[in-house]
Design a protein around this nucleic acid. Structure first.
Lengths: 341, 341
DNA sequence: GCGGGGTGCACAAACGATTGCGCTGAGAGT
DNA sequence: ACTCTCAGCGCAATCGTTTGTGCACCCCGC
């Protein structure tokens, strides 16, 4: 596979392989004279030496591989996080292995097992559920792990996410500012932290404005999908609930809501205003362009990666559990307007 | 790192580690009696044995890692291909390492180097340029490689893509069927196979319909981006070229074209029809919904992965170079209509 | 001039799985 | 009954790197 190995470099430099190893390794190069180091480094460069990852990994039990687990790469929410993480990681000499669970717990377990068998140095988990045995297992184990995008109930692991509560508050303020009083929240799945957090923040925001939160005003969708948005909105209309605005759990749910509203002859924003979450690509080009909460996805991925590196390279101690919430913004667009008279 | 190793299993089964190894390995289990195999397998399962990838890789010089190189994960074109590939590969016991070149050749080279150092068993390349030194290097090397989505001039490596020519023909037939005679092609970058192929197919399709291809009728964009679409369309209008329909090199270019047309007061599809390529998510929800060519992205990824596995596990021989083009479809939507009178 | 403290390096033992080789014993063939 | 064969398994080398240990040797101070 690889031609030139350490022993070749050592021979070329006229030293023992062990010495060559120390010379090449930044941490141990101090144990070797400057002159020898120079000769070894030169020989290595000249011969084009690349260390064999297997041999090194076998000896050191480190792989420089980070596993990142997402539910579905084709969901545009995740690629920016992946990019952010990858840039940080590859800058630090790590390789990111991305794996897709297809929203399936069994698959997820299998993938994680496989990665652990590979000696993965750490995990970035974007699939966490509110009660998540897999995540608890990771927390019990000694492999460094950081949660991103979704948290768990236990708060046992470091977490990086968006400031959901502020996002919801911005959206509600905006709607209330437009005169809306009857606002419905099509919440995300309540087994995810984002779904719960946004719903809780929604109730809180309404109360802040002195509005009551009636029953049926928060309706949880079964998934963060357009179809779930369609279903829940259909039920909402069937229930005869009155409302002039919808805060959707995310953009996909908002899309589902919009299509049902359209089919029911309810104009947006004329009769109903709609706000989404995440600011997916192209939602600004729809008719009407979707008002939505923008999360710093890329920064979330990058920060999570940095925190993970800190856990790995910092000797395990340091701030044990950190919960970081990154700032969000509200992108006000065409799907929200003044409350109809 | 890992508790239980082969020697533990062997001890539990009362055999030599070597024997245990053979018993566990499907290829060599024939060298061990059925009874012994059963005992070993049972012990392995009971103890929860997972082989150490490093030790195995060191000995066998195989990693069961496939590197996939894409220009940008956040471009929705790629995630479906990644998923398709990942499913095939993980089903076969391989791990997919996804890497993002950020459309930068230097980054790409670095990433590929790093992956090769890791003993990557094969590459799936989605970043190929028409003349691509990096790809040629891979072709020269002995590491199995399959190109996907984009081909190179040399045709030295197996390739899986969509049937671009048919896609273009469908689009042109559709436009001509609507009465369009003055059709402009906003071609993709001409250093990519897709850009060249679509442009060439466009000329060919026009001739098939007995239409002349005038100068200025095919205009190459500098990138597959919305901005490039904006720029090229702006130039097109400035040139005073007459046209009633645009075939865009891809959906992003089409989006750019649409916004410029809109700004210029040209209604779509009333005055100008627009066809895209790729069928990105949400382009069916725009106003007007974009008529576009649909590629089987997921199948492309899956087939490419299968071909790569064939190259890796088939002993190198077999059909040396295969070029596979998968069927495409035209999704007719609202952005195309009858030619204005 | 001699002992002591260091520096700089060589030596060799790991890491854990795979695999060519060779030994043992049982069955078959004559 | 004796050899031949071959299935089944144990033995030990091997993959390439890292790292604890110890041996030189040099310089210094007494």
């Amino acid at each position: 596979m690889q031609r030139v190995k350490l022993i070749d470099v050592a021979r070329a430099a006229g030293v023992h392989p062990g010495t060559a190893s120390r010379a090449l390794n930044p941490d141990t190069t101090g144990q070797v004279s400057a002159d020898t180091t120079r000769r070894v480094v030169q020989a290595a460069r000249r011969l084009g030496y690349v260390p064999n990852t297997f041999a090194r990994g076998l000896r050191t039990a480190r792989s420089f591989v980070i596993g990142m687990v997402v539910p579905d790469v084709t969901n545009p929410l995740f690629p920016p996080m992946v990019r952010g993480a990858e840039q940080v990681l590859s800058g630090a000499g790590y390789t990111l292995v991305l794996t897709d669970t297809d929203n399936d717990t069994a698959t997820e377990r299998r993938q994680i097992e496989q990665l652990r068998a590979r000696g993965t140095d750490g995990f970035l988990i974007a699939t966490a559920h509110w009660d998540d045995p897999l995540v608890e297992e990771l927390a019990d184990s000694d492999v460094p792990t950081v949660l991103v995008n979704r948290n768990t109930a236990s708060h046992r692991l470091p977490y990086v996410g968006g400031d959901e509560r502020t996002g919801v508050a911005l959206a509600v303020d905006h709607l209330v500012g437009l005169g809306h009083r009857r606002i419905v929240h099509l919440a995300g799945p309540q087994d995810t932290s984002t779904g719960r957090e946004r719903a809780s923040a929604f109730r809180h925001a309404l109360r802040t404005h002195g509005l009551l939160v009636g029953r049926g005003q928060v309706r949880a969708c079964s998934a963060y999908s357009e179809q779930a948005g369609v279903d829940t909105t259909t039920r909402l209309l069937a229930a005869g609930q009155e409302f002039t605005a919808i805060l959707a759990g995310n953009d996909l749910i908002a899309l589902g809501a919009l299509s049902v509203l359209d089919a029911a002859g309810l104009r947006c924003p004329g009769q109903v205003s709609v706000v989404g979450f995440n600011d997916l690509p192209l939602v600004d080009k729809l008719t009407p362009p979707l008002t939505t909460v923008t999360l710093p996805l890329r920064d979330m991925g990058a920060l999570a990666a940095r925190m993970l590196l800190g856990k790995i390279e910092g000797n395990g101690h340091g701030s044990p559990v950190a919960q970081s919430l990154l700032g969000v913004q509200l992108a006000v667009r065409g799907s929200t307007g003044p409350v109809p008279k």
